[in-house]
């Protein structure tokens, strides 16, 4: 198994996440797409860690743990924001939330 295939898998998953973030209207679905992107990053880190097994194996895993912790914080805040928006606008369509301008 080659490093390249892991990296390609990660890149593909990341691109899928980009597509989701750009296209989805429901804010919860956008958050899910962001989770996909974060997951792609984790795959990438673990892949490199396994490749550089003598030097970076443990550090890569530590980084992944940090990413997971940040992702958990991000999703908590994200859902709180979504709920606040829902309370105020009775809708969580992302393209209707555009009052943060001018």
């Amino acid at each position: 198994m080659r490093l390249m295939s892991i990296l390609m898998l990660s890149a593909a998953l990341f691109s899928i996440g980009i597509y989701g973030v750009l296209v989805r209207r429901n804010a919860v679905l956008v958050l899910m797409s962001i989770e996909l992107m974060l997951n792609a990053v984790n795959i990438n880190l673990i892949g490199f860690g396994t490749w550089l097994r003598d030097t970076a194996f443990v550090n890569a895993q530590a980084f992944v743990l940090f990413v997971i912790a940040i992702a958990a914080a991000e999703v908590g805040i994200g859902i709180a924001i979504v709920l606040a928006i829902y309370r105020n606008k009775a809708s969580i369509a992302v393209d209707e939330v555009d009052s943060m301008k001018w």
């Binding site: 919860v28 989770e35 997971i68 992702a71 958990a72 999703v75 979504v82 709920l83 829902y86």
Partner: peptide, 16 residues
Amino acid sequence: YVGAVVVILLFGIMLT
């Protein structure tokens, strides 16, 4: 991820 994040997301779906 599977245990907590997805559950939060499902809660988000439910509450909205």
